[in-house]
Design a protein around this nucleic acid. Structure first.
Lengths: 107, 107
DNA sequence: ACAACATTTCTATATTTATGGAAATATAGT
DNA sequence: ACTATATTTCCATAAATATAGAAATGTTGT
C-alpha cells in the first residue's frame, strides 16, 4: 500500500457520519445493511447518506450489492486489515513489540 | 473511545504529509526525531511542518519533548493501538474471525 | 549581550469537503 | 402503464483545512 491509498482510506473514515456508518457495517457482518436501514439507524438524510456511502465505496472500504429494490452495503474487511497493517509496518525501530494484537471479537 | 475522539485521531493521519510524518515516527521508535530532521527527511517547509506536528500533537498521536535546542517528536503507540482496537470492535456479527492479527515487526 | 541555529506564530490565499432540499432515476408489485 | 418505495444526482451554500513566506520567539555557547 502507498501513502496516497492509505490517505484515501483514512479520509473516508475520518468523518463522524462515515465512521459511524463504517463501524455499523463492521459490526453488521458480511450480509451488510441496506441504505435505508443505515440512514434510519443513524438519522442521516438520504442525500447526505448517499454522498458518504459513495465516499466509502470509492475508497474501497465498503462493498455494495443490489438486491431487489434495496442496495446493501457491507464492510470490506480485507481493505480494513490492509490499512491497519500499513499503519504499524516496521514499527518501533527494533525495540520490543509495541503494537496491538487485534483479534476479532466474535460475541 | 467515542466517535469524536476517533475522528480526531483519524483526521490527524488522513493527510499525506501527516501520514508520512506519523509513519516515520512509528518506525523511529521511542527516542523519536527532531522537527528539523523530520522536515529534512520529508522535504517539508518548516512552517508547514510545524502546522502538521501541531495537528498530530493535538490529536494525541505524537508526543514532543524539548532537548537542548531541539524538539523531539515521537509516536504515541498506546493511542495508536487504542484507535486500531476501536475500528475492529465487535466486528463481524459473531461470524468467524475476520480481523487482522497485527504484530509488531521488530526487524 | 550577541550570534547562530531551531522552531513556532502570523497572515493571506487557495483548495477541499460537508450539508440537505428538490428533482431525477431505479425497481417491484398490481 | 401506474403507483409506491428506495436510492442517487444536482445544486448552492457553508465550513473546514492546507500551504508557505516572513516575522517572531526560544535556546545554547561565547
Amino acid at each position: 500500500m502507498d501513502t496516497k491509498s492509505a490517505v484515501t482510506l483514512l479520509s473516508s473514515i475520518a468523518q463522524e457520519a462515515r465512521l459511524d456508518i463504517f463501524r455499523l457495517l463492521v459490526q453488521a457482518g458480511a450480509s451488510g445493511l441496506s441504505a435505508g436501514v443505515i440512514g434510519e439507524r443513524l438519522s442521516i438524510p438520504n442525500s447526505t447518506l448517499s454522498f458518504h456511502l459513495k465516499e466509502l465505496s470509492y475508497a474501497g472500504l465498503i462493498h455494495s450489492r443490489q438486491e431487489s429494490r434495496f442496495v446493501y452495503y457491507s464492510a470490506n474487511y480485507a481493505a480494513m486489515n490492509r490499512l491497519l497493517d500499513y499503519l504499524t509496518q516496521n514499527c518501533c525501530a527494533g525495540e520490543q513489540a509495541c503494537c496491538s494484537d487485534i483479534t476479532c471479537e466474535t460475541t
